[in-house]
């Protein structure tokens, strides 16, 4: 089953636009949503949550249009925004008391369980929580109201490596039984190497690729060779950098000339992202 279906979404702002954004998150998997800062990740997430209205296209969650069934669908959505805080002067206990009244399927026992599991102290104010704890609190809320789709916007940004690893383990655990799906936006690609099943890459408001993680990475090749060899392949490269040893560039695997005398390697997500952003810089 497709949990989240973003279909041809476009939205124009004064200085930026989402252009025909489409991707799908299947149930029970983690979709990593990557792109550099300002690529359109948060805008896409806001469209999914109906916080902004789209100019064209449609977003469906569990087969229902978000724009029409917003309140109903939000019963099944959990969220964690790494960079946004709410009611920071309130205690966890107070905030939970308020939030739980909005959810039909709120499970107090599950909430207690997650509070213990995540070691949350209910007397603490939100402002007193570490960044990781804030994300865990959002997860505890989402999981206690039976959310089936978790939308996490940069949940690991600003976390130390141990806290990040801890959260990634939790995400993997959550999708294990195949019920919960996660859309996980980040620019820290190493997190996704560890935990994502699928990757959607957005660049300048357009989706560059959306596929199963290994398949996505396999679409690209990292090539390097001597500067003299650059001219023959330059036009096909997404972007490249030159140094005293020669050049390194990113190319789509199907564009790779079979006879080229260059070294070919499989890139990682970070390299794909970096070379795409260099392409943007080259055009400026």
């Amino acid at each position: 089953m497709i949990m989240l279906d973003v279909k041809n979404v476009s939205k124009k702002f004064e200085h930026f636009q989402l252009d025909n954004v489409s991707f799908q998150v299947p149930q029970g998997y983690i979709m990593g949503f990557i792109g550099i800062n300002g690529a359109g990740k948060t805008t896409t997430i806001k469209s999914i949550l109906n916080l902004i209205t789209v100019d064209s296209g449609e977003i469906q969650i569990m087969g229902k249009n978000v724009a029409i069934h917003e309140a109903e669908l939000k019963q099944s959505i959990g969220y964690a925004f790494g960079n946004v805080d709410f009611y920071t002067r309130s205690r966890i206990r107070t905030l939970t008391k308020v939030v739980k009244t909005f959810y039909d399927n709120w499970d107090d026992e599950a909430y207690r369980r997650y509070v213990r599991k995540f070691k949350l102290i209910e007397d603490k104010r939100i402002a007193e929580l570490s960044t990781g704890m804030k994300v865990k609190y959002s997860l505890a809320i989402a999981l206690s109201h039976g959310a089936k789709l978790l939308i996490l916007d940069e949940p690991t940004s600003g976390l130390d490596p141990a806290a990040r690893d801890d959260l990634l383990d939790i995400f993997r655990e959550l999708v294990q039984d195949g019920e919960i799906s996660i859309l996980f936006s980040t620019h820290i690609t190493s997190d996704l190497e560890k935990c994502a099943d699928y990757i959607t890459y957005i660049h300048e408001g357009r989706i560059v690729g959306s596929a199963e993680k290994d398949e996505f990475i396999d679409t690209y090749r990292l090539v390097n060779g001597k500067v003299e060899e650059l001219e023959g392949i330059k036009e096909r490269l997404i972007s490249h950098r030159v140094n005293s040893f020669g050049f390194t560039g990113l190319i789509r695997a199907d564009e790779l000339p079979p006879s080229a005398a260059v070294n070919v390697a499989i890139p990682n997500l970070e390299e794909i992202m970096v070379y795409y952003s260099k392409k943007e810089a080259a055009h400026v």
Binding site: L49, L51, L73, K74, D85, Y87, R89, F102
Partner: peptide, 11 residues
Amino acid sequence: QNDLMFTNMLP
């Protein structure tokens, strides 16, 4: 307190 976003995230 970012109430606008907080409230809009509620069902």
